[in-house]
Amino acid sequence: MKAAILKTLNAPLSIEQMPDPSAGTGEVIVDVVAAPVLSYAKEVFSGERRYPIELPIVPGCGAIGRVRTIGPDATHLQTGDWVFCDPTVRSRDDALMPDIVLQGWSARGEGGNQLQRYFHDGPFAEQIRVPTENAVPIGAIDPADAARWCALNTLLVPYGGLLASDLRAGEILLVSGATGNFGSACVAVALAMGARCVVAPGRNAQALEDLARRFGERVRTVLLSGDEATDRERMQRAAPGPIDCVMDLMPPSVPATTVRAAVMAVRPYGRVVLMGGVGMLGGAGLELPYPWIMRNDITLRGKWMYPTQAVTLMTGLIRGGLLQLGHFDVTTFALDDANEAVAYAAANGGPFRMTVICPAR
C-alpha cells in the first residue's frame, strides 16, 4: 500500500510503498477514505511539539473508511461497513486504569509506549489496522461525504467533556475557549445536546460574531477584556440565568487568570470540566481557592478525550439532524500531496475548518 511516512523530525513526509497490514484476533483492517490533518501537525512533525513518538511512523489521528478485513472474533462488523477509526486506543489488560494512546500520534508513559509500538501507524495511508472496538460503525454514507465526516475527530473531544459534565437539556453552559477549534465545536455539540444557552467568551470578535450568526440567540458571546474580575462579571451577566457548568478548552498559551475568570463564573453546586492546556508549557498553573470550591459545593474534574460509546452516541446526534456537519468547510488533498496538506492545515486552521487527506483520490 501507499503511505506517507515520517522518518525523521523536521523533514518532509516520504510518500512510498510499504507492506499491507494484516489482521489478527481483535483487529480490523480498514481502507482509509478520509483522514483529517490536524492544524498543529506541522509542529508535531518538526519536533516543536515534543510528542513522544517513535520513528519511523505513518502519522495521522483518526479516519473515516470502509472495513476490508475483520478478525475471527468480530461478530457484528462486515466487510464494506463504513466506520470511524477511533484513534483513542486503550490497553485491554487493566479495565480500571488502562494505558491510552492516540494511534499514529502520541503516547504517554512506558505502558503507552509499549501499546504504541504495536498499534503504531496512523491513517496517512491507504489502509490502517485498528483494534476491533476502534472501528466504530457510522452507517452508510455517500463516499463524497467521507471527508466531512472527519469532523467527528474534532467534535468528539468536547463531547467527551460534556458527557463527563453530565450536561442536561435546559442547562446553561459556559465554554472557555469558545473561539478555538475545539471550543467552537463544543458550542455546536452542547446546543445539539439541548443546552438552553451557551455563553461563549473570547478575544476574537470576528469568531464571536460567526458563532452568533451560526447559532442565533442560544449563544451569548462575551468579548474578553483581560481583566479577571471584569470578565467574570460580564460572563455571568450575559447568561440568562445561573451558569450550571463550565467547560475549559483553552490552549497552553493562555494565562491562567483567563481560565479562572471563566471557571469561577459557575453557580454554587455547579460543575467544571478541565480539558485545556494551561500550565503544560510551563508557567503558572490554575489556582482556585479551596474555600470557594468547598463552600459552594463545586464539582471539579479533568477529562482527556472521550469514552468508548461516544462515537456511537455522536453518530446518533448527526443522524437525528441535531448536529450539522455542514458547519465545517473542508479542503481535501491526495495522499501524494500529504506535505502540502500539512502546510495548508497549519496556515488555515480555525473554527469549523478542516484539511483532509483522501488516499483514494
Rank of each mutant, 00 (worst) to 15 (best):
F328N: 01
T315S: 15
C61Y: 11
V67G: 05
I57S: 04
V356A: 10
R213Q: 15
I318W: 11
W82L: 06
A229D: 14
G276L: 07
I15Y: 15
G160L: 03
D248F: 00
D227C: 07
T132P: 00
P158E: 09
S253N: 10
W149K: 09
G104S: 03
A164W: 02
R271A: 11
M275G: 06
P87G: 14
R260I: 10
F84A: 12
A169R: 13
G270A: 02
G216E: 13
R301M: 15
A151F: 02
I128K: 01
V219W: 11
A238F: 06
M247W: 04
A74F: 00
R260K: 12
G109F: 06
L163Q: 14
P201S: 06
I64S: 03
V266K: 00
L317H: 03
V37S: 02
M294F: 09
V136M: 02
D166K: 08
E54G: 12
P255F: 11
A146E: 13
G161K: 02
D248G: 12
S225M: 01
A74S: 15
L313R: 12
E217L: 03
E287S: 14
T355G: 07
A63C: 06
V58P: 08
L102P: 01
D81A: 08
S91A: 14
Y344C: 03
M264V: 07
N153Y: 09
P98V: 03
I53A: 05
D329I: 00
C85A: 14
M1H: 14
E228S: 13
L6F: 01
N153D: 15
V32C: 10
P36N: 07
V30Q: 08
V342A: 01
M18H: 13
G302R: 02
V263A: 14
G160D: 10
N153K: 05
P12M: 07
E217Q: 13
L6W: 01
C150G: 14
L335R: 12
R295V: 11
I29K: 08
Q236G: 14
P131L: 11
A144M: 08
A345M: 08
R196P: 00
A4L: 10
R237W: 00
M193Q: 11
N153W: 06
I141T: 05
E340F: 00
L173R: 01
L288H: 03
G109V: 01
L38Y: 07
I128Y: 04
G320N: 13
G194V: 04
R117H: 15
T308N: 11
R108V: 05
A212W: 09
V273A: 11
A169K: 12
A107W: 05
V311E: 09
A35E: 05
P289A: 12
G62D: 03
C358N: 14
N113C: 03
A338L: 02
V259C: 15
M264R: 09
V136A: 00
Q127Y: 14
G26T: 08
V175R: 07
D248C: 10
R319M: 02
V278Y: 00
A256F: 02
G111L: 04
R129C: 12
V342N: 02
L6S: 04
L162G: 06
L115K: 10
A346H: 15
T308G: 09
